[in-house]
Amino acid sequence: MNLFRLFGDLSHLASIFILLQKIQSTRSCRGISFKTQALYATVFITRYLDLFYEWVSLYNFTMKVFFIASSCYILYLMKYKYRPTHDPSIDTFRVEYLLGPCVVLALLFHYKFSIPELLWSFSIFLEAVAILPQLFMLQRTGEAETITTHYLAALGAYRALYIPNWIYRYFTEDMVDPIAVTAGLVQTALYLDFFYVYFTKVLQGQKFELPA
């Protein structure tokens, strides 16, 4: 464990608490893509199956349980409790265009041809693009509530912090995970546009609005 990874994971935790806070305080999931949230739940469930047969650490175990449980809880909130506040007509990204290629990529790139390793690879590729329905929705509506942008910023920071973590691990542990690194770089790159607007507008006290 190094500080980059620790702060990355804490940022990931923070993003989920911000999202829950957004939903509870506005009593609405307006502006949140159900598709992205469903993809994240899929990512966690397919990746963390090793919970049942592999012990890494108490930290690792607790985080995995938290990410699976919180992502399912968010789906429940969106699908049932705050269902009327979710507008599927703006959440129109076709997720099959993400799922299909991720299945193919997992079949092509994996460390071992076994069910858990294929699912692990699939989850890594899927996580890289899971934010796209959300970013697509943002692009379509052209604006976002400030708290939603904090959620996205925390999520993006988590991914960004994993990059120095990999560099650090390369030098200190001689450890490289090419699949995770490649997918992670792509994932972080997807946030660059968002980060630009976040830093130049939201953090200057303005509303998140995309140029028309």
Partner: peptide, 10 residues
């Protein structure tokens, strides 16, 4: 290679 990196990251 056939070596599987340990999946110790989240």
């Amino acid at each position: 290679g056939s070596e599987v990196p340990k999946h110790d990251e989240l």
